[in-house]
Every structure is written in structure tokens, then in C-alpha cells.
Design a protein around this nucleic acid. Structure first.
Lengths: 331, 331
DNA sequence: TTGTACGCGTTATCAA
DNA sequence: TTGATAACGCGTACAA
């Protein structure tokens, strides 16, 4: 391994001088700079990042935590978009990252979780899919001195930022579009997520409530735990009496479409998230397409703001109300 | 940050003694050991991995390279299984990893690629989906002194190991099962991958050829670049005249099923890989289920063998011929 | 059995 | 403008 010593020898200068050239210090003569650059090039020298970290006392390490059940088909697609962006950003910001899945914490207590992060020397967290993350993990994260960015949440404090779309607005728009595209809409079945105080779920519900007041239909709300199977069962049971089915995410929309197919009836269905899997229903489904890659990029940006000492904030991302069709998504 | 010095002070011993206790050296008295352990516990001391790496001159860094077009739905599922296992293993073996997608190298030349790895100080490579990786990348990897494990390939040399199932045997079995489940099978359409010298593709083709000799049907082979769209087109064109459609991977099987649905005819279809997406065709599809997580685990095992100085080898993994149904895969 | 001293590759301070 | 030297946190040969 070629080190800074080799370079300094070859260039005939002190290693501290080499370091200065490499780190763009001022007050280096053009002549020495050139000598050093030549040696660097010839030896193909690249600084050892481990030594740099130690010297700079730069021990930042971020955990990318994926919430929810990543092993399921629909989640994989979103995860991978989050992650592939995140990996690129981690290089850009020269930050060590490890990737974790929130399932791994499901059997751990608060204390265990804190110790785990301490043992890994993690001081930064990017939490993808906050609503899916378990309670103990959230507690642990809030307790200690982490810098946290939550993706798909809308909450901030001194050392916590968040990144998400405006769920309420998006839910309103995609539902309205779906309703307006169809004439009959006296009864609307809305498949919500888990019945708890999750702010995102509440925001979407509020959007539906506003829409109901505005357009005057009958709104039937059912909770599903974001389960495809549960959505399927609910549609088999209540789908016939509804004119439109609106779902809080795409996977429930998919379950709904297949249930309708099985019942041999048609109802317009709309989803939320914009995953490609929706195309495999072979039915055009309205949905809200989120820019997952860009959200991940933004998350790193926010993390670096926090590390620079700036206070946490919420960043709203753009989205697109669109329709997914099988023929558009295959290649 | 609490360092080894803090521990040594608190325990009233030299820091080298602390190090010895932590690294399980012999010849440490029970008394000092206990003193040290107490201090470690009270201070919640955890060794700084950066300093450890520097001190041990342990600069191993592995690149996990995902071949193929990861942004597509079907690939995401496989990728994520590979990766989630890999991340766990990387912690177990205490190895730094970065995750890359082979697309990123598509516009780089051999020299650029080598420089890239050098700049990242990467000396180990785990290559997922070798057949999908571009030529320049393979050349670059072979040229330099990397330790390489290829997942889903069957090739080894001194510093290269590989991990895969027996593709030929698996293709033979799943095809035979599908054929035997159905009476009429005079004409069989086989959708192969890309027409090149990819060994896996050839192995599968050979399996089909053997089966043809054994059972005596007419085998029509078409090449698809593993494209769902292309499979769809081929089935629209040739599907009517075939009695069974056998595909070299699941995504082509999916394209085939939807094409058949559109033509309003039924033909048994079998795939390969065992991805859940297949369930969304709403048709029971025979396929070969691969243990992606375990393959990733094995890959790390092989990598460590190489790092220990052992020679490369091929490791055959198990698989399962199975049927995927929608109701089994949803939750 | 324990402690001293040095090296790992780099950056930063300060004297020259 | 440059160079010597002390950190950074840890492991380890070698001396005690």
C-alpha cells in the first residue's frame, strides 16, 4: 500500500507538505505543488480513509434503518430506491453507513437498542418509513444524542429533521381525480392503514373527510394494517356496495383489484405510493408517485445540515398524481 | 468519546493491559481482568473500530456489486434478499462494505473502473448476478489483485470463488415437472436469455436439449435478453402453436402469462428464480426457488476463505422446485 | 504477569 | 512557504 510517506520521498518534500497540497492549503508554492502532484499521479496515491478519519477525529457513522417488512414484494421496490440513492450520497458526503432493518429491533428492549448503536459507534440515523418502525426503537433514538432524519414523516426538533410529501394534499388530489373520472360515486370505501395515531394516516383520513364534505358522498372507512390480504377480504365483503375504492397505499389497491376481479365486478380503485407492482394488476390504477430517490438524497442533505450544527426542520417533497399501466412499466 | 485511556485510568492499569483483556490474551490475572471488565462496563467502553483498523493494518473493504437493472420490479426483490443478508454478514466478519450497482460502470472504461476501485481502497468484490455484469467491469476485476466471489456463476481460480445452484439440473427438473403435469406436450416453446456464451444460459439450454431427447417433443428456442416485453411479444406470436411455455426466468414467465391471458388461451408456463412477483399473475406457475439469502451468506464465507489465503472454489447451493400462487404470497 | 514504547497513515500546530 | 512533531485510538513486541 502506497502511503503519504512514499509520496513525500518521491517528491522530495515533507509529508506534511504533501498533506497540504492534497487538502488545498494556501501558501504552497506552485513548484512544490507540481512536484507533489506528479508524485501522487505516478504512485497512484490515494489517501487512506481510515487514517484520515482517525486523524480528523471524524467518527460520524450513519445507520440507514428501513422500516416495515422489507421482505415483501412491494416494499422491496421502495427500499431499493431509497438505498441506491443513499449509497451514492454516503460516498459523496464521505460518511460511513450501515444498513439495518427495523425488524431486527423487534425483540429488543430500549436498553439493548441503545447499546447496539453505541457498540456500532452510530451517531446518525436515517429512518425510512417512520410509521412502520417499532416503538422501542423510536424511544431509544429520541433518548440519546443522535442526529436523526426521518423519511416519510413530518416532525422535527433540534436534532431531528424530516422529509416527506404533503400526504394530505396528495391523498386529496388522487382521490378527487379518481372520483371525477367516474360519474357514480355515492358510496366510497376508503381503506386506511393501521388504526392508531400515526400522523400520516390521520392526514390522509382528514383529506378524505374534506373531500366528503366538498363532494357529498358517503364515506366508509376500514382499517387494514396496510395488509393486502385484509384489503382483499374487506373488498370481498364491502366492495359490491361501494362505487369507488380508495386505498391508503398501492399494495391494498392491488389486493382490492384482485378481489374485484374474483367477484367479477368492476370498481375504480386508487392507490398511493406509485410502485410498479401496481401495473401487474393489469388495470389502470391512479396513484401518487413519490420520488423516493430524491427523498433519500434530501435526507442526506438534511443530515449534513444537522451535523453542521443547524437546527432540524421539515422538508416537503414533490409528488405526482398519475396512472400506472402494465404496458408502461415493463421493458 | 471514551477511549482505552479512560478505561486504563479507571481500572488503574496500563492501556496495553486493557487491550489484552479485551482481546482475550492469556497470562492476565483474574484480578486485573475483573478490574478491567468492571471499568469497561461502567464506562460503556467500546473500541473505536477506525483505530483498530488502522492499528491492525486491516484495510479490507468489500464492494457488493449488483448486476442487472436493479430498478425493475422483479430484480428489487432478489437484490434486497442478497443485500439484507450481506449487511448482516459484513457485521459478523467486521468488514467494511459499499454497495454498487453495475449500471454505474456501464459508461466507464477499464482504466476508469480500476482507478475507481483503487480510490475506494476496495480489495474484495462480491458480484451478484455475474451474467448481467458488463464486460469492462469483468475485465477490470480480473486484471487486478482482487479477491472475488461471484454469486450466480460457476467459475473459480486462485483468488476467485463462486456460488450458485446447479442451473442445468434445476432447469431440467422444473421443466420435466411442468411437462409431466400436463398431457399434451408435442411442441414446447423455450424462452432463453441473451444469445451469447453465458455459461448459465448454455447450461439451461443443455438441460432442455436433454429433456427433448428423453421425452421426444419439438423444442422451439427463442432468445429474449431476459425481457418481459420481448417474452410477451414472442408468446403473442408463437404461443398459440406451442403446448407448454418454459422460461429461463420468472419475469419472462410473467410476460408470457399475461400475453396468454390477452390471447384468451391457456398454456402451462414455468419460470425460474422463485420470485414472489410471479404470484401476481394469478396463475400457479412452477419455478425454481433459490435461497438468495443463504447464497449471500455463503459468499461471505467464501470471501473469508480467500482472505485466509485458501484457493478459490465453486460452492453449489440447494434449490427447490415449487409452485407460486397468489394466495400463498400475500399477507 | 504487567507496563513501556512504538507504529499504523493522516492532519494540524508551530517553529523555522 | 516548508518541515518537524505531536496528536488520533488502538495493538503488540519487548522489557521489566
Amino acid at each position: 500500500m502506497v502511503s503519504i510517506n512514499d509520496v513525500s520521498k518521491k517528491a522530495g518534500v515533507a509529508k506534511s507538505t504533501v498533506s497540504k497540497v492534497l487538502n488545498n492549503y494556501p501558501f504552497v508554492s506552485d513548484e512544490t505543488r507540481k512536484k507533489v502532484e506528479k508524485a501522487v499521479k505516478e504512485l497512484r496515491y490515494v489517501p487512506n480513509s481510515v487514517a484520515v478519519s482517525l486523524s480528523k477525529k471524524n467518527f460520524n457513522k450513519a445507520a440507514l434503518i428501513i422500516g416495515g417488512e422489507s421482505q415483501f414484494q412491494y416494499a422491496a421496490e421502495i427500499c431499493l430506491q431509497y438505498l441506491s440513492s443513499a449509497f451514492k450520497q454516503s460516498k459523496k458526503y464521505n460518511m460511513d453507513v450501515i444498513t439495518l432493518f427495523s425488524e431486527q429491533f423487534s425483540k429488543m428492549l430500549r436498553e439493548d437498542i441503545i447499546n447496539f448503536f453505541r457498540a456500532e459507534h452510530i451517531n446518525c440515523i436515517i429512518l425510512y418509513g417512520y410509521s412502520q418502525v417499532n416503538k422501542y426503537l423510536c424511544e431509544a433514538l429520541n433518548s440519546d444524542g443522535f442526529y436523526i432524519v426521518m423519511v416519510d414523516a413530518d416532525f422535527y426538533s433540534d436534532r431531528v429533521s424530516s422529509v416527506s410529501i404533503n400526504h394530505k394534499k396528495a391523498q386529496y388530489e388522487v382521490a378527487k381525480k379518481t372520483i371525477e373520472e367516474n360519474d357514480i360515486h355515492n358510496i366510497i370505501l376508503y381503506l386506511a392503514g393501521k388504526k392508531d395515531d400515526n400522523p400520516i394516516m390521520l392526514a390522509k383520513l382528514k383529506a378524505m373527510e374534506e373531500l366528503r364534505k366538498e363532494l357529498g358522498f358517503q364515506l366508509i372507512v376500514k382499517y387494514t394494517n396496510y395488509s393486502e390480504k385484509k384489503a382483499r377480504e374487506l373488498v370481498l365483503k364491502y366492495g359490491k356496495d361501494a362505487h369507488i375504492i380508495i386505498c391508503a397505499n398501492d399494495i391494498m389497491a392491488i389486493g382490492s383489484v384482485f378481489a374485484l376481479t374474483e367477484m367479477d365486478i368492476f370498481r375504480p380503485v386508487c392507490g398511493f405510493d406509485g410502485i410498479l407492482l401496481t401495473g401487474y394488476t393489469q388495470v389502470a390504477v391512479n396513484t401518487v408517485k413519490q420520488a423516493y430517490s430524491e427523498m433519500s438524497i434530501q435526507a442526506f442533505h438534511e443530515l449534513n445540515r444537522l451535523l453542521e450544527g443547524k437546527l432540524g426542520r421539515h422538508k416537503e417533497m414533490h409528488y405526482e398524481v398519475t396512472t400506472i399501466r402494465y404496458m408502461d412499466i415493463i421493458r
